[in-house]
Design a protein around this nucleic acid. Sequence first.
DNA 1: GAACAGGCAACTC
DNA 2: GAGTTGCCTGTT
Length: 280
Amino acid sequence: MGLKMQKIADSVNIWLCSSDELDPVKTFECGQCFRWNAFGGAYTGVASGRAATVSVSGGGVYIDAPEADMEFWRDYFDLRTDYAAARRSVETCEYMRECAEFGGGIRILRQDGWEALCSFIISQCNNIPRIKGIVEKLCGLFGDPVPYGGQILRAFPSAERVAALEAEDLAPLRAGYRAPYIISAARAVASGELDLEKTALLPAREARACLLKLNGVGDKVANCAVLFGLHRMDAFPIDVWMKRALREHFPPDFDPAQFGEYAGLAQQYIFYRARSEGTS
DNA sequence: GAACAGGCAACTC
DNA sequence: GAGTTGCCTGTT
């Protein structure tokens, strides 16, 4: 037990899963989420208005959170999905075996649909530090307070809250041309014009089509929202990193649908590796 | 200062 | 329909 765990009031530090099942560093750093930050070897984050700290000790992943939230977190970390089987299903070639080895322990988080949609609207033409900065400012200005460990963290603001704002209210975010996209997406969600819960039940193709109607949401953002926010694991977002990886390692006529129902996990394995190589 | 970035929409041909 | 360009802002 090398890591001293500080007990945080009103929360318990409990075993979440084996560290073979979940690698927090890879999972939080692979580009799917923007609200987990490393402090002293552990990650603290907020999701759906709940705060937690995740750490690895010995062979286990531990989570420090209110006891009442533990079911939520088990769901959030997708612990009911068999990732060993999912991983095997996308190891379709030697390159994929290497990517899966490199990205082993990545899990696709079951994030809130609105948060994912909004975050990936912000992501366009931005790098991760800037995306995180804009998202933090959005939460700091408009998110509800979440008391945790003697500090006040902030929830991601609801679509209703953002829908009530005007683009100029978002000026402090420095989100640029994305600000009106954020507002109009919030209004679509808040008004029920876009029902994310119903959309999540549709086949990935149709879910994507619903999101594509939003101004400022194209193919890439829609696919990210479907994969990370609606947890449709067969969605396969393609950005510039993925384009390059597909070009270099797959035949020109390759169809990512060949990866099957866990294509989105395949995407994360490929993406995580491509980005690690590209930015090192 | 110019070019560019994990993308999109509007416009061109 | 395939290709080009401007867009906010921040970084190089």
